[in-house]
Amino acid sequence: MSAPELAVTERGRVLVLEMNRPEARNAMSLQMAHEIADALDLLDTRPDLSVGVITGANGTFCAGMDLKGFARGERPVVEGRGFAGLVQRPPRKPLIAAVEGYALAGGFEIVLACDLIVASREARFGLPEVKRGLTAAAGGLLRLQRRIPYHLAMNLVLTGRMWPATEAAAVHLVNDLAEPGEALDAALALADEIAGNAPLALAASKQVLVRSQDWSLEEMFERQHEFVQPVRESADAREGAQAFVDKRAPRWTGT
């Protein structure tokens, strides 16, 4: 058995995923993609977990696909979840990217698949695939223009240039900037704030925000019903109301 390439730890209601291939700048391998997929399944199925945080070891987020593996014919894709076991089907629950150093190519596409982004002021993003005769096919071309202005997205894709996190924050792609070395701590503080809320409500709210982008005005209220109605009928909804009446902190069960 190969040594794990993803370190997974629990911190209260927060699940932390640390990509751990520092010798390759955490480039994505097939093994690590499967380990990420397994960790996200754990996040989604455990009612006592509310939020995920994904980061990289040794001061780098992820340099993208492992090109040595690609040269051997290996593609770090998990069926049904896509590249990195993540980009095609992110988890139902909120996922935060904590970025130090470089998030390039597939690494940036992992970031774009997350719901919130915390980055070091010295972090760098980029989609340099065109410089390697490739395209950003793991969600970069699909998601980037939905996150930032069209012409900026086109510039980044066609030039393949490095993009400082400070510039990304200026157009609100990055939620919070941290001092170098402190991105994970800042992401965990944000995750703890989110995890204080009802887990079913968090997951349902995320799903409506993500899925409703192409719903028509005529159908959007009906289509959100399948996500929000189970929350209204949940034990957590009753607990939230009772905690308000009792003037105490709610005790969420995720049911």
Rank of each mutant, 00 (worst) to 15 (best):
A105K: 00
V208H: 08
L152W: 09
V228N: 09
V245G: 07
H225P: 00
L141P: 00
V53A: 01
N155M: 05
A241I: 15
I36M: 11
T55H: 01
E222Y: 10
A201P: 02
P76R: 06
R251T: 12
D185S: 15
F83T: 12
P91D: 07
G85E: 06
W163C: 12
V16R: 07
G52T: 04
E23L: 12
M220G: 00
H225T: 04
R124E: 11
H225A: 13
A113H: 02
Y150K: 14
G52L: 03
V77N: 05
A7N: 12
L152E: 15
V111H: 02
A187S: 02
G59V: 03
T253E: 04
I54E: 00
A63G: 07
G196M: 06
W252S: 08
A191F: 10
P180I: 06
K93E: 05
A191T: 02
A27R: 15
E233I: 00
R143T: 10
R121H: 00
M28A: 13
R223M: 08
R89P: 03
L217R: 10
R89F: 00
A191D: 07
E23W: 11
V111M: 04
T45Q: 14
D44G: 07
S212T: 03
A183C: 11
L134Q: 15
G140F: 02
R92I: 01
P47E: 07
Q145C: 04
S216E: 10
R21T: 14
L43C: 05
R161L: 12
Q145N: 14
R143S: 05
P90Q: 12
H172F: 13
G254Q: 06
V111N: 02
Q31E: 14
P164Y: 02
I36P: 04
D236Y: 03
D185I: 11
